[in-house]
C-alpha cells in the first residue's frame, strides 16, 4: 500500500476519531443496544488501522472474528436478555466514578509520557510483501506449540460455552411423592419420662 503520507495521516485521524468516539459511546451510552452497535464500529475502525499498518490479513481476520462473530454474539446476548432493567442507583456512585476517572486519566498520562519519552528502536526495513505467508510460516515453525494449544483452548471454550448455555429440557419440577402416614398422634417415648 503506497498511499501518500498526507492521506495516511488524514485516514489515521479519521479512524482514531471513530474509534475514540465509538469507545466512549460503548462505555457511556445508556442504551446498551446502541453501545453494542458502536462496538462494531470500533472494531471496523480498528481493522482500518491495521490496514494502515500494512496488515491486510489481520485486518480481514479482525472484521471476520470481531465484527462477524463477537459482536453478533454480544447482540444475541443483549436480545436474549432483553429485560428493560432499571438499575437501582447506588448511594455513592459518583465517588467510584470520580476515582476511576482519575485513575484512568493518571494511567493515560503515565503511558503517554512513557510513550513520548522512550527512544524507540525503529527498524527502517521495508515490510514483508506477503504477510499471510509470513504469519503461516511462524505458525508452523517457532509458534507451533502456542498454535496447537490455542486449538485445544478453542475446543474447550466451545464445549464449555455449550454446557453453560444449554437449557435443560428435563422436567425440573418433580412429581410430589405422596407419603403415606397414619393419622396418629405422636407419642412420647417411655424412656424419656422414666427418669
Amino acid at each position: 500500500m503506497n498511499l501518500a503520507a498526507g492521506v495516511q495521516i488524514v485516514s489515521f485521524g479519521l479512524l482514531a476519531a471513530i474509534i475514540l468516539v465509538g469507545a466512549l459511546g460503548v462505555v457511556l451510552l445508556p442504551n446498551i443496544v446502541f453501545a453494542a452497535f458502536l462496538l462494531g464500529l470500533v472494531f471496523i475502525g480498528m481493522a482500518g488501522q491495521y490496514l494502515l499498518l500494512n496488515a491486510d490479513f489481520v485486518a480481514a481476520a479482525q472484521v471476520l472474528i470481531y465484527v462477524g462473530a463477537v459482536n453478533v454474539l454480544i447482540l444475541f446476548a443483549i436480545m436474549l436478555v432483553n429485560k428493560k432493567e432499571d438499575f437501582t442507583p447506588l448511594p455513592r456512585a459518583w465517588v467510584r466514578r470520580g476515582a476511576t476517572a482519575l485513575v484512568c486519566l493518571g494511567l493515560f498520562a503515565l503511558m503517554g509520557t512513557t510513550i513520548a519519552s522512550t527512544p524507540w528502536a525503529l527498524d527502517p526495513a521495508p515490510t514483508v510483501s506477503s504477510s499471510v505467508a509470513t504469519i503461516g510460516a511462524h505458525f508452523f515453525s517457532d509458534f507451533l506449540l502456542p498454535f496447537e494449544l490455542v486449538s485445544v483452548l478453542l475446543l474447550a471454550a466451545l464445549i464449555g460455552a455449550v454446557v453453560l448455555a444449554r437449557r435443560d429440557y428435563l422436567p425440573t419440577v418433580k412429581e410430589q411423592e405422596t407419603v403415606f402416614s397414619l393419622p396418629e398422634r405422636p407419642r412420647e417415648l417411655i424412656t424419656s419420662d422414666s427418669k
Binding site: 452497535f37 462494531g40 472484521v63 465484527v67
Partner: peptide
C-alpha cells in the same frame, strides 16, 4: 470477512 458483516 465482508460477508460476516451482513448479519449486523
Amino acid at each position: 470477512a465482508l460477508a460476516s458483516v451482513v448479519p449486523i
